[in-house]
C-alpha cells in the first residue's frame, strides 16, 4: 500500500449501523488517523432523535483538497463499513457502484418490528449474497464475537477499524491508530484497543 496517496480523491466511506452502536466514535477514530497523515476529512453525521434505534450513517470524505459535501452523492461510495449486517444493503442500494467494497459486522440487531413479529429479518445467506451482488469485494467479520472475547462488546468498533486498515485501501497503519488512541487514554486501556485493532486487521488478511 502506498502510504502517501489516496486511490481516489475524494475517497468516500460510509460507516453505518444502528443508533447506539458507536458510529460516531468509529468515524472519529478513522478520521483522526487520516488527519494525522495530513489529509482533509469531511464527515457528515446526524445525532439526536434519529439515533434512537434507527439506521445511522456517517459520510466520510478523504481528500487532499479541503472540504467536500458532508453528504456523499448517490452511487459514489468507495467503501461501506457496516456495524450491522443488514444495514450494509441499505447503504449499498443507495450509494453503491460496481467498484464499491464493503466490510460488515455479522451480528444482527433486530428492528423492533422484527422483534414484535411484524416484519422479517433476512437470513445471513441472503444478506451475504445480496452484498456480494452489489460489491466488487466484500468482507463479513465477527467483530462483536471477537470483542466479547476481549471482554466487552464496545471493542467491536475498533475491530472494524482494524479490519478497514487490513483491507489496504487507505494510507493508514496501526501506528496511526496507536497515536489516535494513545491521546485520550491510559496505557493499559490503549493496549486492549491496539489488540482489538490487530484482531480486526488479521480477520480480513487471513
Amino acid at each position: 500500500m502506498d502510504m502517501n496517496t489516496l486511490q481516489k480523491d475524494p475517497y468516500n466511506i460510509i460507516i453505518t449501523g444502528v443508533g447506539g452502536q458507536g458510529n460516531v466514535t468509529a468515524s472519529r477514530m478513522l478520521a483522526g488517523m487520516l488527519v494525522g497523515r495530513g489529509y482533509s476529512v469531511t464527515i457528515g453525521e446526524t445525532f439526536g432523535a434519529s439515533q434512537r434505534g434507527g439506521s445511522v450513517m456517517s459520510h466520510m470524505r478523504i481528500s487532499s483538497h479541503g472540504a467536500w459535501s458532508p453528504q456523499i452523492p448517490k452511487g459514489k461510495v468507495d467503501l461501506v463499513v457496516s456495524l450491522e449486517p443488514s444495514e450494509t444493503i441499505k447503504v449499498l442500494s443507495g450509494y453503491g457502484n460496481p467498484e464499491t467494497q464493503s466490510l460488515s459486522n455479522d451480528r444482527p440487531i433486530y428492528p423492533v418490528r422484527v422483534i414484535a413479529g411484524d416484519d422479517k429479518y433476512p437470513s445471513m445467506d441472503e444478506i451475504r449474497a445480496t452484498i456480494e451482488n452489489l460489491t466488487a469485494r466484500s468482507f463479513m467479520i465477527s467483530a462483536t464475537e471477537e470483542a466479547l472475547k476481549l471482554g466487552n462488546p464496545i471493542y467491536q468498533n475498533v475491530i472494524m477499524i482494524g479490519a478497514v486498515g487490513g483491507m489496504d485501501l487507505l494510507p493508514v497503519s496501526i501506528d496511526d491508530f496507536r497515536e489516535v488512541i494513545g491521546r485520550g487514554m491510559p496505557e493499559d486501556k490503549a493496549a486492549v484497543n491496539v489488540k482489538a485493532y490487530e484482531i480486526g486487521e488479521a480477520l480480513v488478511r487471513n
Binding site: G20, G53, G75, I89, S93
Partner: peptide
C-alpha cells in the same frame, strides 16, 4: 446517471431486503 443501469436495477431490487427500522426507546 451515477451508476450503470444494470447496477441501478439490482440496487433498487436489493433495497427491500433490509428491514426498516422504526424509532424506539433504547
Amino acid at each position: 446517471e451515477p451508476v450503470p443501469q444494470e447496477y441501478a436495477t439490482k440496487a433498487f431490487q436489493s433495497m427491500f431486503k433490509s428491514p426498516g427500522r422504526e424509532l424506539t426507546f433504547c
